[in-house]
Design a protein around this nucleic acid. Structure first.
Lengths: 204, 204
DNA sequence: CCGTAATTTCAGAAATTTGTGAAATTATAG
DNA sequence: CTATAATTTCACAAATTTCTGAAATTACGG
């Protein structure tokens, strides 16, 4: 491997991290390299920079394509395949979430629904099903939230995220408007809407 | 392995899933079994039900304890160690997020900060650093959000989550209050606060 | 203390995953 | 078409991870 130290650190780190996730060290490093590269790279350039075998790089690129994490493109007068990662990090994040959901969450949800259909014959099974029902409901709540949220455009989403726990105040507005006292907060008089307006000033 | 079919399906599924995450098949299965069990289990009971070696189960339990996913307890007049998973799924979710953050996100953030301190000497390095800065900022935004949100109590968090993309309306309230027109929505007149009150009625 | 039950450690076996080179396939320029 | 460049496939080698049984350690009742 022959890389500027700064880049090498990043690439090696992602190699290690890759193993913690489902992907191999090679795939992690290839991705990291592409992520940092100012321009598209072809397989031989990756081989040259990371020192893996040509076939390994080919496999790795195939896997990254299966994950939709990498884009294939062609340069004029060059028939080799060149690869890049999207420039927009939010897009990368969305892809990552999407793919992990597809591979981990959806199958689990299917399996849970399947098992929840069956009729338990013992108390132990009944208890197990109750646990699975809880898990199912939580996962469904989270995925519904995700499906809803992931379409919000990045800049607004960033705004929303930096709001953090302050979004809770939305309930205070609601309580205030509906005349019902707050049920869970310690405050006896909830903040007025004007207060909520303040909370949206989130440029830290 | 000698389990009710319904439980076996779940246990096997978590074994497979375990491999996709950082944990081994054994650890995944042990966790799944504990999760479904109506009462605490000791190591020998796990051996008996899953058919792994005693030492393997010992290792597995140790790893689950390192992840804080499992609680050790003792039964009266019995000196063996018994294990359970928390009954509250929100707590489990929080632990999971916490531990993954500790193992995956924090080290990455550290590494990024480290590399961002260094002075680039080429254009390629300069570009790489810009990319890393973007990644750093995104991760920091997300973890800040997480740190903020994870302290909200489950019932309120569930309420918030089922709000989904509707939380966006909070900005319309703000725009409305500050007199500024909406910049991004198609609506020329944003919803009034009363409208926002409606959106909190989220019991689907 | 002693004896025994419970758990842990650890070296190596077994299984799985990852990586390679040679051969096959595909694509394209001439 | 043919020649060659580019990529992919695949059988096997290498490396890593997982699992086991035997031995060591720890914990505790008597």
């Amino acid at each position: 491997m022959n890389l500027p130290p700064l880049i090498q650190t990043f690439v090696l780190h992602f190699g290690e991290m890759g193993s913690r996730w489902g992907i191999s060290r090679t795939v992690g490093q290839i991705y990291a390299l592409l992520f940092l590269s100012p321009e598209p790279l072809n397989a031989d350039q990756i081989v040259q920079q990371l020192g893996f075998s040509r076939s390994n790089v080919s496999m790795g690129l195939k896997e990254l394509q299966a994950w939709n994490l990498v884009r294939l493109q062609h340069l004029p007068d060059d028939r080799r395949d060149y690869f890049t990662t999207p420039g927009d990090l939010w897009e990368i994040l969305r892809t990552l979430a999407e793919e992990r959901k597809k591979r981990e969450v959806d199958p689990t949800l299917t399996m849970l629904r399947d098992v929840l259909m069956q009729t338990p014959s013992t108390d132990v099974e009944r208890h197990a099903q109750a646990r699975m029902q809880d898990m199912h409901d939580l996962i469904e709540l989270l995925t519904r939230w995700y499906d809803d949220i992931h379409r919000i455009e990045p800049s607004r989403l960033a705004q929303l995220l930096s709001l953090g726990a302050k979004v809770q105040k939305i309930f205070e507005v609601k309580d205030w408007l509906t005349g019902g006292g707050p049920e869970r907060t310690g405050r006896s008089v909830p903040a007025a809407p004007a207060d909520t307006g303040d909370t949206t000033d989130t440029t830290r």
